[in-house]
Write a protein that binds this DNA or RNA. Structure first.
Lengths: 330, 330
DNA sequence: AGTTAGCACTGGTGAATAATGTGTGCTAAG
DNA sequence: CTTAGCACACATTATTCACCAGTGCTAACT
């Protein structure tokens, strides 16, 4: 691919990103100081290589997924990190009163607003977290609330019904034993340890050790969530402002997917780089591009993702994500 | 309005609800054993009274908002509480392992699924709740987590940064005092009591009482949320399956509104009856009907709401809501 | 007085047609 | 290698036409 062809591909991608409509040969004449026929010849060549496509036999060209890819990897230039957008982000990030996750969420919300794409934060709430404390708080004769706190300050709670044959006293006592023995245990090992450490231990002193363990199994069960992704959307529906979402079925399709928690959680990544997944190669929606990266701040890890049309302002998004990621990771 | 005219209005409303298209005079001939001209005469009369409308000069009639209203109040018959739908609800409601709010949410989800309308539960999390316990759990040198539990078992938590000039010890001690003095206090009075009860009390024994109170003010501040509505959607986008949502703008408009938390929270009601708000008279969206009612189960109160097109299966929705409300309130 | 048949009329719907414009591929000449 | 010129392809839009479902009105009928 010659130099002019590269420039041409770049021009076509950028024009299409900006103007949404297929770009024809004539529109590029002045820019390249040559006739439309020349442009057409190059276009044909780029199409043969698979970088361009036509929507119908005599339309202008649009970039193929391969074309976008080439653009992202070889042609685009990251923007300078300046301007009011970045200023907004900095203001938030410098606010020391904000807990990290809140700051990240707010930043992603802003990025969503200035780009009109949908942003997602998948905070792996307590990846690698260990138990800091568990409390049992009796609510009435039939119910207690169990509250679990991790070493990073995440909290989960659950209401549990007290089985008829157990007394609150026994529960509280068992809870104390658990606190003594299990503090420092990674969350995902808690259930296991409950069975193989706690049960034998309380078997010595308590009659109803089976029932008690089963009760705590119950109480801990939903805390698994702490290990799961916590999903935050910044401007969930901003992507609908993109002109590609102009027909009912397309809108409903994307909304459906954004509401599908399982699908969204799939976006999670632990890739330290910012990766761009265009169309078919993301497993979210073949008509979109997903740009994502992980972050890791003092063991608090998660995923930042932006979902937009394939015709996305790649340079802008990558620049912003890059800035945010670097800033929070210092 | 004569007897036949009432029957006619009923037939028109029900036909339109079912078939979505304006109903013409001829389609009702057999049912009323008369000619289309007769029907037309009655239709004209009903239109004069404001119960019917035309979409254009020579279309069939559709019910006006006034017409729907008359239908709901005078014409429709509640369905029998039978069938598999109700069975599904009962199964959930009989599951004793489910906490009330979860059971309600699941039921509303089912109602949304069988009707294809959007259902909302606004659980006033802890209306009238009082403080049961507050704990301070140190996370590291700079952070603590405050955990607040209410008498109904609701939990709120918040990470707070420790001001430089206060020690964790002092915080924990103050916390104990708060627990002694403030347990039983309604949540919305906590901040007030912090100022006028706690501050004077700790002023006796602690030097930095000002700073400590300010710290706890901070720690409590977001717990106000507990007094706010907790929004749950059952099948948020089910309403999009209704044929009226067949153009991009309409879809985007309703999605926008459903994403607008403030607007949704406005739906809240404390009306014990099931009320139907058709079109302009609901302040959510003039093209929809909102059917809502409050529930109150042992002091746990909230709002159940269904949002659908004005052309809604009023009898079905009211019947289902009625069943659910009565069942949970025993 | 209420009901009905008949008729002219209105507006929506869908198919067919035509006109226009934007773009292409190809060829041949510069 | 570049360019002008030309025939062709397809999307878009507007126009027309026929059709249909429905109405309002009038006059006749029970």
């Amino acid at each position: 691919m010659g130099e002019r062809q590269k420039k041409l591909l770049k021009a076509i991608v950028e024009s299409y990103i900006k103007n949404v409509k297929p770009v024809g040969s004539k529109s590029l004449c002045k820019k390249f100081n040559c006739s439309s026929a020349t442009i057409r010849n190059d276009m044909m060549y780029l199409e043969e290589l698979g970088y361009l496509e036509k929507t119908h036999t005599s339309s202008g060209r649009i970039p193929s997924e391969k074309g976008y890819h080439y653009y992202v990897e070889n042609l685009m230039k990251l923007k300078d990190i300046t301007g009011e957008d970045v200023l907004k982000l900095q203001t938030i990030l410098n606010n020391k009163d904000l807990v990290l996750s809140d700051a990240i969420n707010k930043c992603m919300e802003i990025i969503s607003d200035i780009t009109n794409y949908t942003s997602i934060v998948l905070g792996k709430n307590s990846y690698n977290n260990v138990l800091k404390q568990i409390s049992i708080i009796p609510i009435d004769e039939k119910k207690v609330v169990s509250v679990l706190v991790t070493n990073t300050g995440h909290v989960a709670n659950r209401q549990v019904i007290i089985p008829e044959d157990i007394s609150v006293k026994e529960i509280v006592k068992t809870c104390e034993i658990i606190n003594k023995s299990l503090v420092g245990t990674p969350l995902n090992e808690i259930l296991e340890k409950l069975e193989f450490v706690i049960k034998p231990e309380i078997a010595k002193t308590m009659q109803k050790y089976e029932e008690l363990c089963s009760f705590f199994y119950d109480a801990f069960y939903e805390f698994k969530d702490l290990n799961k992704d916590d999903v935050f959307f910044g401007g969930k529906t901003n992507i609908l402002k993109q002109p590609e979402y102009n027909e009912p079925e397309k809108i409903k399709e994307i909304i459906e997917k954004l509401e599908n928690v399982e699908l969204v959680k799939n976006i999670e990544t632990d890739d330290k780089e910012i990766k761009v997944y265009i169309g078919e190669e993301n497993n979210f929606d073949p008509d979109t591009t997903v740009i994502k990266t992980s972050y890791n701040v003092d063991g608090e890890v998660g995923t930042l993702a932006i979902i937009g049309p394939k015709r996305m302002e790649y340079d802008k998004v990558v620049t912003l994500l890059n800035f945010l990621k670097n800033y929070i990771e210092r």
